[in-house]
Design a protein around this nucleic acid. Sequence first.
DNA 1: TGTACATCAGTGAACGCGCGTTCACTGATGTAC
DNA 2: TGTACATCAGTGAACGCGCGTTCACTGATGTAC
Lengths: 230, 230
Amino acid sequence: MVTRRERLREATREEIKAIARDLMAEEGTTVLSLREIARRMGVTVTALYRYFPGRDDLITALIVDAYHSHAKAVEQASQQPGKIVDRLIAVMMAYRQWALDHPTEYILIYGNPVPGYHAPSEITTPAARRSLEAFLRIFQEASAEGQMKLPDLAEFPPHYEEFQRQWAQANIPGIPDSMITAMVLGWSQIHGLIGMELFHHIQPLIGDPGPLYEYQVKQMLRGFGLKIET
Amino acid sequence: MVTRRERLREATREEIKAIARDLMAEEGTTVLSLREIARRMGVTVTALYRYFPGRDDLITALIVDAYHSHAKAVEQASQQPGKIVDRLIAVMMAYRQWALDHPTEYILIYGNPVPGYHAPSEITTPAARRSLEAFLRIFQEASAEGQMKLPDLAEFPPHYEEFQRQWAQANIPGIPDSMITAMVLGWSQIHGLIGMELFHHIQPLIGDPGPLYEYQVKQMLRGFGLKIET
DNA sequence: TGTACATCAGTGAACGCGCGTTCACTGATGTAC
DNA sequence: TGTACATCAGTGAACGCGCGTTCACTGATGTAC
């Protein structure tokens, strides 16, 4: 049973986080000031300490929120009905779209770490893994349908395959070892473009990165042996 | 003629920048404190103002240095003798190696902007373009030898091609339009992997990203129609 | 329905810290004659 | 070779600011009987 007080309390926590996100968007993720948040809420700094034990805990909450929001966007795209190829494309497009819609949060989780802040990994890693697993699952689906050509791990040094077998068995039992390699490759490719787009390194060269992103996604999937019409 | 005073002055400027780089490596690029630099040099803060008009100018100098250092590493790799394919691979490998050797400077130019700092674009953009041009040149060489299959711009929206033609003619006359697309694609792919490596997002999944990087580079070049032995 | 008490949200002063930048200055290093 | 002067590196105090966190507190909101 949720009491009125608990509801209000939760609402205030959300308000704090929302203003924190605004602030990060304006000033950068690496300078987040409790006092400025309080000022915007029309409240004393010390009031915030009723809701978060300190600045670091607020940042942790923001990071966890961001991971979950990102994961949710990707999961929704992956659960659309349709052919596996189209769903793969949808997932990649959703990944970017989320980043464009939430640039600050994207930078918070994938960009520079916040100086002086140390993430409690027992809290952030499970959240981080979630958005990754959505990726892994849809890659696995495509692979199970026999449509994907995964990288040949024999091309890599022996210890490389070993490391991946261990990780796979410990974390997602039953997954083919080379799946992780494939996923990481795809994952980092889209990260590259998204990152350069968010920091405006690409726009002066080619204008709107949208078409290039789509092209790149399709090329990548073709590289994995999937048939894609242009 | 360089006087003794000028030499000493230049040496002190270099010392300031070197300590600034150390500090950025320790605390992050986004918090750079003049006072801490002075402390480490055993000098008062105000002394620094003899060498840089202010904090922003120091940061600008660091950024320009970083771009040039990066460009130099890439240019050197591209000028090695040998087959064009091997030189392309060497360039890509040099790009990553520089990032690993100078993580702080890489993050400074390609990561989060420094809060409150506004880069004077008339100074930083030419420097930024230099490392890019090294890439373009070797792509162009490969293309001139007829070994490269460039992306078909007909697959993109019409305005996309138009934008690129204009940029190409204004900046690097004579270059094929689709070359820029190709280069940006390759460029962003390696950025993705390097970024995730520097921020330790990949290591928990696959261990050493080195082999994966090499694999990715070769796959990419194969995608451009080049023949590469494993 | 009314009263006594506990819980909780928020206040305001204070601590101790670090920051970039300015200003008037001292003393050493170079230069011109 | 010696002297007068200009240039320059570096000092130290001060300004005005913002920060996260602590502490003892007030007053409103809920709860138990």
